[in-house]
């Protein structure tokens, strides 16, 4: 099950997108979230859709794999779609069953909103698929660096993030092991009433907490032994390099926004 989720996973490759500065990619995503909302008609959606697929192409991530990975969120997208279909009362009436009336406007809105949702998920998955988590963290630390001046513990937050990222696979592994051990003792995590299922989680959660605390304690000791005494006076091993292609991406983004802005009034 967990193996099929692609959100948050990194797929190594040497594509242009992989080689971009994480800061450029982060800025891009922030901007994209805004730009997607500029789309309001067939033309604009087509443009932004085409643009998204261009990035997918450049990233060399297999489309089939991306779409397969979207399956878990598809349910959510469908739910949004039907929500709009059932509750938007605009345009001509398409059909009617009993109390339910479906309008043309609702269907169009449903399609647009679901599309917007899908594009956002696609682009953000692409960020994590093409950027090692640690680079994302570095990018965030660097972009938010100025906040240190107003006493935001940017270094500590970034370190926390990178350690969490480091331990996610370890803890997933551990969850899997404990789950198997309890299933071997007859625990059932997947059937029965809701209250029974909640109860069934206790034998999983407690060992997981106990071990996570133990790990945290040992890690703290190991970090101290290796000379960690906070962000002060620390140098950085990873250095981010902004290149021409990152500037190009930014320029491209501006052009796209402008195009969308013009096309949206057609």
């Amino acid at each position: 099950m967990m193996e099929k989720i692609i959100f948050g996973r990194y797929l190594p490759s040497d594509s242009v997108v992989h080689q971009m500065d994480p800061r450029a990619k982060l800025l891009f995503i922030f901007a994209f979230v805004g730009i997607v909302f500029l789309a309001n008609n067939v033309m604009t959606y087509a443009l932004i859709g085409a643009f998204t697929f261009l990035i997918v192409f450049l990233s060399k991530v297999k489309l089939r794999f991306l779409i397969g990975g979207l399956k878990p969120v598809l349910l959510l997208v469908l739910f949004t779609f039907f929500l709009h279909v059932f509750f938007t009362k605009e345009g001509d009436i398409l059909t009617q069953f009993g109390l339910l009336t479906i309008y043309k406007g609702g269907v169009i809105k449903g399609i647009f909103i679901s599309l917007r949702f899908l594009l956002l998920i696609l682009v953000t998955s692409l960020l994590t698929l093409t950027t090692p988590p640690i680079s994302v963290t570095d990018g965030i630390e660097s972009l938010f660096g100025p906040l240190k001046k107003i006493k935001v513990p940017v270094h500590e937050l970034a370190l926390m993030m990178s350690i969490s990222l480091r331990f996610i696979p370890t803890l997933l592994d551990e969850t899997d092991k404990i789950m198997k051990a309890q299933r071997a003792r007859g625990a059932d995590f997947s059937s029965g009433s809701i209250s029974n299922r909640v109860k069934a989680i206790i034998p999983l959660l407690i060992p997981l907490f106990v071990s996570a605390f133990k790990r945290a304690e040992e890690l703290a000791v190991a970090m101290e032994a290796r000379g960690y005494k906070g962000g002060e006076g620390r140098t950085k091993y990873r250095i981010l390099r902004w290149s021409m292609r990152d500037t190009m991406a930014m320029v491209f983004l501006v052009v796209l926004s402008a195009a969308l802005f013009i096309l949206r009034s057609y």
Binding site: I178, K180, A181, I202, I206, P207
Partner: peptide, 12 residues
């Protein structure tokens, strides 16, 4: 019955 490696990790 299975006794897993480091089975003490399953106590709760």
């Amino acid at each position: 019955g299975i006794v897993f490696q480091f089975p003490e990790h399953q106590l709760f």
